[in-house]
Amino acid sequence: MPHQKIIQTSSIDAQSSTRSTSNTGTHYDDLLYQRSLIYKKNEISLSAMTFLFQEMINYLHQSSSTMSEFELKLSRYGQSIGLRLLELLNFRASLPASLTSIPTRSSILFSSSAPLTDQANSNSTNTPDAIRKREEESSTNADLAKHITKMRRRDLKILDILQFIHGTLWSYLFHHVSDDLVKSSERNNEYMIVDNEPQLTQFIPQSSKFLNSCHFFVCGMIQGFLLNGGFPCSVSPHLMPVDGFDERVIYLIKFDEQVLERESLRF
């Protein structure tokens, strides 16, 4: 009999706890989905992001048998982000300037963490104030569409979409535009995006023979972005250190034949 009792109480406990978690869960879910698409300065700790990235790499590294398998898997992670970013960034670029406080030079993904001792007081996301603010945001979100007078046109030219990556995508991800955008002089279908100081991989030692492979995450993002925009291609990273920038990396974009054919059809 006492046996049963224990089970009962525990099941009640479990119920109540699941109920409470599901409550808070939906609460947060609602907030997440109601969050405005307008840019809000919403920084993420670089430490947290690199720890996550480190775990991603570690996990993939252990689950892959070959290096190319690892690169492919990492690149897929990036692709799923790139695919979505095309939509989001195009939408944001369509919003009138009055709504977007800092239109392009804004980063959501990365920012440095606060100094070591300040961490405690910077965490104010769940104060009533913050929640109220979010609710206000979500109300503006509903009639956001009517502010858009003219949707940004889809990029159809190779150069246009590469410019968009160089400027808008890079600013969104890394807080700055990419350091260079170059067309290969040898091959027609090759373009290069240069980053002098890649942020995500900055803590990975250069002596590591896997460093180059770790760049496939960003490659995947570019690839997914281009793929979704109708530019099938393959992207690969190349380490090209120059003076002062030991970690300089070049993302080489090779467009498929069909892209070039389509490009040549237009005038």
Binding site: T50, I102, S112, S113, P115, L116, T117, E197, Q202
Partner: peptide, 26 residues
Amino acid sequence: GGSGSSGPGSNKLGSFKGDDFFKDSF
């Protein structure tokens, strides 16, 4: 400017913001 300090060279302290790793007594 929090958003303006995007100069790649300015952030030399890895994931630490500002010009020093910490500024308080410990």
